[in-house]
């Protein structure tokens, strides 16, 4: 008998009293009525608490702010579907490298890149969580992981207050990364410190009109 058959047999035997579980009550909040300004305020509060950098800007200011945030970078990687106008103001000396199907950066190349710019799919204000789902403007998971500085564009239109409100906007079978601040650890005396293996700097641009 295979392990699978045996385990399933054990389960049947363990549940021979045929327990019937109660129906799941879902009385928790699934919708909210916050205004755009309130959502922005809540999200900024959470991101600052996580020690992420955050700016609230208009669509037209993106190139300027991207350049300002990445002023110390030598090279920047971006997913091939990213709106390249956003990188227009980066100084000449900064290498701009697209990660595209057919021309993927190796892990070593990513490690030598100072920063990454991505967009994002949906953001939850209440927990300060930005979700990347591998769309062409967000790229594969490695590019937002290996470079030490992640600059993430969050369209204000993609902000929701509650996690349950974000769920319908996700395609669960894509590789998803939920990001709530820069990498951190609470492993020493249960005190949180930022900056371990993931990007140690997370900058977020909340963009109106996008």
């Amino acid at each position: 008998m295979s392990a699978k058959e045996e385990i399933l047999g054990r389960i049947r035997s363990a549940l021979s009293d045929a327990p019937v579980a109660e129906e799941t009550p879902r009385e928790y909040r699934t919708s909210s009525q916050m205004s755009e300004e309130e959502l922005i305020e809540m999200l900024v509060d959470r991101l600052v608490d996580y020690k992420a950098g955050v700016e609230v800007i208009d669509n037209a200011q993106i190139p300027e702010l991207v350049a300002a945030k990445l002023k110390d970078a030598n090279s920047v990687v971006f997913p091939h579907g990213l709106d390249q106008r956003w990188l227009a103001d980066l100084p000449q000396g900064v290498a701009q490298i697209a990660d595209a199907p057919g021309s993927r950066l190796t892990v070593a190349e990513l490690d030598e890149t100072s920063a990454v710019v991505t967009s994002s799919q949906v953001t939850i204000a209440e927990s300060g969580t930005i979700i990347l789902d591998g769309e062409p403007n967000q790229g594969r998971r490695a590019i937002s992981l290996v470079p030490d500085h992640h600059l993430c564009i969050v369209p204000v239109s993609s902000i929701v207050q509650l996690l349950p409100e974000a769920m319908p906007r996700l395609t669960i079978t894509r590789p998803l990364t939920w990001i709530s601040g820069p990498s951190a650890t609470s492993d020493i005396e249960l005190e949180r410190v930022e900056g371990v293996h993931g990007p140690r700097t997370l900058d977020v641009l909340l963009v109106r009109g996008l």
Partner: peptide
């Protein structure tokens, strides 16, 4: 914490 820094989901 309100949310842990990273959650990964793969299918």
């Amino acid at each position: 914490e309100r949310m842990n820094p990273y959650t990964s989901l793969w299918t």
